[in-house]
């Protein structure tokens, strides 16, 4: 059992607050992805869990035991570093076997485990090389293999696939997920690649400036963003926003159209819709097409509604010319509402 509980963790570097009061529980064997823009505190949180950084306040529990006073080696974790940290004076074999040798495992067990994880990471032909003789992507796979070889309860990975080409990355993604599920490891996986996050995660924690804004399943994060930041960070292109004015109880007026919306006494809300959740129709939002980008699978049209930019994804057969006027009907169950003051979602 390796459930991870992060309780009220805060971290400041001098006057700079890198993490504000993080609370997060990661279930045993869960695959949790930390997703966020560069500098939002992902690595810092991971390093606090690993024991490489001391939190300014708060507690970390793993498997029902408080571990934030333990040294890294006693926490039952393995970590993949953002910059690999492959030992330059050891061969790939000895790098992967380093932790196993520290555990004083017998030689044949070390060899067996090293060869197994090297096979998983497709680096079995590099075992005799030194890290200076490897490419960035190969080094990164050595780092992942070294952590996997430990067969830890908890594995912490800081952008472990960032340096691989698209094809290899896709393959590794699936393989890594499979290996970790099979070995019943609890994983925290840092990335700023949304596609990676969506495809691998059991749950995604979206981080923003030292806070976890939302921790939920990928589809929930995508469909029901808890805050405007999540809506505008996830999805490519992200959600569209338009200002909305009250037009009676539970009715809101958006760009001249009236929609059913939340029943609040706010003077203004933001109407939000994903670009793919709109169809051309007789009745709807009237937009002027500005830029038309055929993307193969579909057509991305950037339009203007009032003075707001608005993106819509249409079928690739649609014929749209810049300057043309479009009437777009949002799919009613996909419309979301945000409070511009708190930036949080309003039901």
């Amino acid at each position: 059992m390796a459930e991870i509980q992060i309780k009220n963790i805060a971290k400041s570097f001098g006057a700079f607050q890198a993490l504000n009061d993080i609370n997060l529980t990661i279930a045993d064997q869960e695959f949790m992805v930390l997703l966020g823009a560069s500098g939002c505190g992902k690595s810092t949180l991971l390093r606090i869990i690993a024991g490489l950084e001391v939190a300014s306040s708060g507690e970390v529990w793993i498997g029902g035991k408080r571990i934030d006073h333990l040294s890294p080696k006693d926490r039952g974790i393995a970590m993949v570093f953002q910059n690999y940290a492959v030992f330059p004076h050891l061969t790939v074999f000895e790098n992967i076997g380093f932790g196993l040798r520290m555990k004083k495992l017998p030689n044949d067990e070390v060899t067996r485990r090293v060869e197994r994880v090297a096979g998983l990471m497709h680096i079995e032909m590099l075992l005799k090389r030194y890290s200076g003789e490897l490419s960035g992507g190969q080094r990164q796979r050595v780092a992942v293999a070294r952590a996997l070889a430990m067969e830890p309860d908890v594995i912490l990975m800081d952008e472990p696939l960032s340096n691989l080409d698209a094809l290899l990355r896709m393959e590794m993604r699936a393989e890594l997920k499979g290996v970790l599920a099979e070995s019943k490891t609890t994983a925290i996986y840092v990335t700023h690649d949304q596609v990676e996050a969506m495809s691998m995660a059991d749950r995604i924690s979206v981080m923003h400036q030292g806070d976890i804004v939302q921790a939920a399943s990928p589809i929930e994060v995508y469909r029901d963003p808890a805050a405007k930041f999540v809506a505008s960070f996830i999805g490519n292109p992200p959600m569209n926003f338009l200002p909305a004015k009250p037009a009676g109880p539970s009715k809101w007026q958006v760009a001249g159209q009236t929609f059913d919306g939340p029943n609040t006494d706010k003077a203004v809300l933001q109407f939000a819709i994903r670009p793919e959740d709109m169809q051309p129709a007789e009745q709807g939002l009237v937009a002027t097409a500005k830029i038309v980008e055929p993307l193969g699978a579909h057509l991305l049209v950037t339009c203007q509604i009032g003075d707001a930019l608005f993106r819509v994804i249409l079928d690739s057969d649609a014929v749209v010319k810049p300057g043309q006027s479009l009437t777009l009907a949002p799919q009613p169950d996909r419309v979301r509402w945000f409070d511009p003051d708190t930036t949080l979602a309003v039901a």
């Binding site: 690993a50 890294p72 080696k73 974790i77 970590m79 910059n83 940290a85 932790g99 070294r146």
Partner: peptide, 18 residues
């Protein structure tokens, strides 16, 4: 020598000394 090398060693079962 990048500190991460030492940190990696710590997570792999080393004390500061080892």
């Amino acid at each position: 020598i990048p500190i991460e090398l030492e940190e990696a060693a710590w997570t792999l079962g080393c004390t500061r000394l080892t």
